[in-house]
């Protein structure tokens, strides 16, 4: 059986908020190392890969592999009944028809319990190769969100270019063009504001802003975001969570002019 207790319901609420635009139904794969999820959007352009390590829960128990097939819209409806600060416990039997969610408020005088029906989801699983990315950019997640939003007003696509000058986000549309350049920046007192650029070779790739905007819904999960790029491979956008848990998005590049 599965029993996984989260100190704050906010984590699961934010995870669901972050992925439900991309994916409507998916399996939460539970095993003794934690709860994972991998799903592609309908158009097979973007993929979300999330893993909440067992250390992110206290306690965590999962005796055997269990796939919880969940409709994220339905899960979100149930999670709306949880306050951000509530303690959230997920429970399921070994071959479950439902997942049980319990929300306890901080003063433990209110306990809400919901059963969410599960579904059989036959999901394609992609092997993501380990990649030595040519460029890795870490920046405040709010900054990435702002760049994505601002450029979305101009164009459907953005070209992310990384060279020894730094990183630039450029787009061109009917009304004109825009370009945002970021340079390395270190703030010892506020490391969340740092911009770090590590590059082994120059990279320039074009991506659909619509999907980047979707990824940015995860901004509330982490103060920093990491963009990993290599020429001619999908972009990885990673939001690191506590205890080595993570939510990663992959986006296939656009090609040609």
């Amino acid at each position: 059986m599965l029993e996984a207790r989260l100190e704050q319901a906010a984590l699961l609420k934010k995870v669901v908020d972050a992925i439900k635009e991309l994916v409507q139904e998916c399996n939460f794969d539970c095993n003794d190392s934690g709860i994972g999820l991998q799903a592609m959007d309908n158009s097979h352009v973007a993929l979300v890969s999330m893993f909440l390590k067992s250390e992110s829960f206290s306690p965590f128990r999962c005796d055997r592999n269990i796939a919880l097939g969940i409709n994220l819209n339905a899960l979100q409806k149930v999670l709306r009944a949880a306050q951000n600060e509530d303690i959230l416990t997920l429970k399921a039997e070994d071959a479950p028809d439902v997942v049980n969610l319990v929300f306890e408020n901080a003063t433990a005088d209110r306990i809400s319990e919901y059963d969410l029906k599960l579904m059989d989801i036959d999901q394609e699983h992609l092997g993501i190769p380990d990649t030595d990315y040519a460029a890795q950019i870490s920046m405040p997640s709010s900054e990435f969100q702002r760049i994505t939003r601002d450029l979305s007003a101009i164009s459907e696509s953005v070209t992310i270019e990384c060279n020894k000058e730094g990183v630039s986000f450029a787009c061109e549309g009917d009304i004109g063009k825009g370009n945002i350049k970021l340079r390395q920046y270190t703030n010892v007192d506020k490391p969340a504001e740092n911009v770090e650029v590590n590059m082994t070779e120059p990279v320039a790739l074009t991506f659909a802003l619509k999907y980047l905007g979707n990824f940015c819904k995860a901004s509330g999960l982490s103060e920093q975001v990491r963009l990993c790029l290599s020429n001619e491979v999908p972009l990885m956008v990673e939001y690191a969570l506590a205890n080595n848990s993570y939510i990663r998005f992959y986006l296939a590049p656009k090609i040609g002019d």
Binding site: H44, V45, Y250, A252, G256, D257
Partner: peptide
């Protein structure tokens, strides 16, 4: 207009 690639061109089904 650039053409959108498909992810399955890069990642193999397992």
């Amino acid at each position: 207009t650039p053409i959108q690639n498909d992810l399955s061109e890069f990642f193999v089904m397992v």
